[in-house]
């Protein structure tokens, strides 16, 4: 077992995949805590479908590095969802659903009409579920991913106290001179970045799992914001790492193996949380 792992680690693409996987899971779990607490869990889902639609366009246009197109469009989508949610009479979650299914349908349509390769369903499956594309990452993509992750982590750390205040009570935060709208925008941009990064790892259908599972699991265990944040980062990274190693060893799809690991971890945390509460 260990021998096999060491052998795999000798390949640069395996190391790249592990690095990207750990970074993406770290960033997504950081943002997950505030998203879950604000009842925004599904923004990740909607945005990932926007990212999927854009990915389809990028494929048709035969862009070499599709992030160049996907990232700005997804950020735009995030801003749109937030603005629309707060302005119009429609419910925020309805807007999300509208944008999300439209992007999904249009993306699939575009892929079909302008078929680039013979294997459309294979391509679609790859974008939806992540598949093996993470094992084909080039060096430039890995660098880009590292750069963006550093940005996300740095912004989160510097804004940590303010994010807490705005998440806990946005009225109070505004009354004491914070600008909640600005932080909402910031969070939307960060989550758009994370989702674009995560597309390669678990695909657009499963990315929500990376965002919400670690946060939900940690909330069962801990009672302070700091502990919940730290714990979800640790749980998320451990699960992503374990899932990736497992999938490499036994040849299962990367994305679904990671999400399955997250699910198992979530169930375990629920049990521990339940036992503790019962024991008291």
């Amino acid at each position: 077992m260990i021998d096999k792992l060491v052998m795999y680690l000798a390949y640069p693409f395996v190391r790249y995949a592990l690095i990207v996987g750990v970074l993406v899971s770290l960033c997504s779990s950081l943002l997950g805590v505030t998203l879950v607490l604000r009842r925004y869990s599904f923004i990740g889902d909607g945005l990932s479908h926007v990212a999927f639609g854009t990915m389809a366009i990028a494929t048709v246009l035969r862009l070499s590095n599709n992030m160049i197109l996907v990232l700005p469009v997804t950020i735009l989508g995030a801003i749109l969802i937030l603005k629309a949610g707060s302005r119009t009479r429609m419910q925020g979650d309805a807007i999300l659903a509208v944008i999300s299914v439209s992007a999904l349908a249009l993306g699939y349509l575009i892929m079909n009409v302008f078929a680039v390769s013979a294997n459309i369903s294979g391509d679609v499956c790859a974008t939806l579920f992540g598949s093996t594309s993470i094992l084909t990452l080039g060096q430039s993509e890995v660098w880009m991913c590292m750069g963006l992750s550093v940005v996300v982590i740095a912004v989160f750390i510097f804004m940590y106290n303010r994010l807490f205040s705005v998440t806990f009570d946005s009225d109070f935060a505004k009354a004491t001179g914070q600008k909640p709208e600005r932080y909402n925008m910031l969070i939307a941009i960060l989550i758009a970045i994370v989702i674009t990064l995560g597309m390669n790892l678990v695909g657009s259908l499963l990315i929500t799992a990376l965002v919400i599972f670690p946060a939900l699991a940690s909330m069962r265990l801990f009672g302070s914001f700091k502990a919940v944040t730290v714990s979800s980062v640790i749980l998320s990274v451990v699960c992503a790492f374990a899932g990736m190693v497992l999938s490499i060893m036994i040849g299962t799809p990367v994305g679904s193996t990671i999400v399955a690991a997250d699910l198992v971890m979530f169930l375990i945390c629920c049990c521990i949380g339940g036992l503790r509460r019962g024991g008291r």
Partner: peptide
């Protein structure tokens, strides 16, 4: 999930 101290000190922002 927030501790009492975290909430109180957020008033200082």
């Amino acid at each position: 999930p927030a501790s009492v101290y975290e909430i109180v000190i957020s008033g200082r922002l």
